[in-house]
Structures are given as C-alpha cells and as structure tokens.
Amino acid sequence: MNIELTHSDLIDLDLRATDRRTAVRSLAQRLVASGRVTDLEQFLTDVESREQQMATGMAGGIGIPHCRSSAVTTPTLAFGRSAVGIDFGADDGPATLIFLIAAPEGGDSDHMAVLAALARRLVRAEFKRTLLEAADPAAVAEYVREEVKP
C-alpha cells in the first residue's frame, strides 16, 4: 500500500459538490477507495463532530475539514478544488481549496509530523497559489509530497 501523504487518486481538481457535506463525502469516498479509511460513515461522523466544534473554513478561501478517527489507517490528505466555492464557515466567503485531513486515532508523533508539515504549508501564499494554478492531479500530489518531506 502506498503510505505517502497523498497521491493522484486522492485529488479532485474539479470538485462538483456545492455544499460542505457532499464535498466532504465525495473526497472521503476517495479515501475509502484507496484503503486509507475503513468505515466511511464513521469517518464522516468524526469529521462532522470536529466541524461542529468550530468551523474549519479559513480566510483566503480554504476549508480544512479534518479529524482523528479510528476509521483512519494512515495520515492522509485528500484535496479538492472547487470552481464555484463551498461554504466552510469562513468569515470572508466560500472555500475554493478543500483539504480533507484524515488522522488515525492513535498515531504517534512521528506519524503525525507529516500532517503538521502540511498544516504549516496551508498558510503559505506560495503553496495555495501553486494548488490554485495546478493543471493535473499527479503534479499536485507530487508537489504536496515534496513540500511535506521532512
């Protein structure tokens, strides 16, 4: 099994969903298909309960639904780009870049370091611009993997 943070099957550069739940479900299905998530409904419940604590939309058009879940096998990123934007509760409008971050329940800190590195990239203008302009999923996956290398 591919244990990299993400790969091209987990990237949807033309996310059609128009609301938050459908968008997350669509990306989560990719996680299930790639074997990163074992139980879709459990995972969606966990994401939703995190979302209820505090909306994950951030200024600058990004949404970062995420959770620690027993249904997750390995730290993974599924990425979706929406042309119209999807509301993730940010003050300044809908999100065009959606990062669905899946973390296993009992991951040790080494395991989680890759997610920490990813989170740090999310606030870098260069990182967001590259993802907005990317044309093909394989290139995005390659770029993200390079960026989060320890």
Partner: peptide, 17 residues
C-alpha cells in the same frame, strides 16, 4: 487546538511568518 492536527501548526506558521 482541539484535534491538534491542523490549526495548531497553521497558527504557529502564521505567527512565525
């Protein structure tokens, strides 16, 4: 942050920047 996965590190990065 509550989950300790995303915002903790985003906030750290933003503050450093």
């Amino acid at each position: 942050c509550p989950t300790g996965i995303a915002h903790t590190y985003m906030a750290a990065e933003a503050l450093e920047q």
